[in-house]
Design a protein around this nucleic acid. Structure first.
Lengths: 147, 147
DNA sequence: AATTTTTTGCAAATCACTTGCATTTTCGAT
DNA sequence: ATCGAAAATGCAAGTGATTTGCAAAAAATT
């Protein structure tokens, strides 16, 4: 196990939220080059040790976010996330709850599903209670749909 | 209504699958610049007329895909999609079926959900029946719907 | 420890997408 | 229909995330 991989596993394992390559990169900048972070993340995803999704947020732009995925360990199972459009923080939605739905699709359509991406966006409780209801600098939202 | 917007609405309305900016761009290249396509897509999404999600596929890389969304018209409601990792085509999963789940999350966590992204990936029936269950290096697979 | 294999760092490239700005188009009011 | 303000477009150049080539460095093998 290389130093870089150890470091990335460390930060991913400690963080309780998805991290982007750039966040990881700055968290372990003392140890390795950004390019290595990208390569390491590919490696981890390839080995089934990490999970990722692409999300666009007005503050950080479009980036891929990663979480650890340790087979067997409940705390590292495949989760889904909510992303607050205001404070740009993630809220853990817990273990995946669409297994049944995915199975239904497989049966109905004869497809074989090997992966899925699901995340929600909106306003978190903290931002809501601060009166940030999303009507302010909200560029594209009004319905409970999309993206 | 400008020529560019008319053209983009036309191709999006005709396509029965999500289209990326670059696909749209080449479909209407006779009419306008790629930059205009991007601006038009932002415009449509802003107006709630289009829906999008970012998907990475080995053949086309990471791109944002768009579909029309016409309020009222059933055929243009918010859908979800399956993407075949092999032939790289989309299969329509029909109207969104996670409304209840989203409501549950809202109640449980006190979040206000204004948008979500969901798509599935795997192997489509056609590719499966051709014995392609993994990731080979072939595109231009079988023929099915549009193109 | 010597050899082979894999990983890393750096520089430069790619790719999707965005921005600045001057030039059209569109559109509402005349 | 026409004029002028406001919005949209094209082109060139810029961003920012991610990738790639290649030689040096670190791991894994023997």
């Amino acid at each position: 196990m290389t130093k870089a991989r150890k470091a990335v596993l460390e930060v991913l394992g400690t963080a309780e939220r998805p991290l982007s390559a750039s966040e990881i990169s700055s968290l372990v900048s003392h140890c390795c080059d950004p390019v290595t972070i990208y390569r390491t993340l590919h490696y981890l995803e390839d080995k089934g040790l990490a999970d990722s999704f692409v999300l666009h947020c007005t503050e950080h732009g479009t980036e891929r976010y990663f979480t650890l995925l340790a087979p067997g360990e409940a705390s590292y199972a495949h989760h889904h996330w909510f992303h607050c459009e205001h404070c740009h923080q993630f809220i853990d939605l817990g273990d995946c709850r669409i297994g049944t739905l995915v199975d239904a699709y497989q049966e109905e359509l004869g497809i074989r599903v090997t992966g899925h991406t699901l995340y929600l966006t909106g306003v978190c409780p903290a931002c809501s209670s601060l009166g940030r209801n999303g009507q302010e600098h909200d560029h594209r939202g009004h319905e409970s749909q999309s993206e």
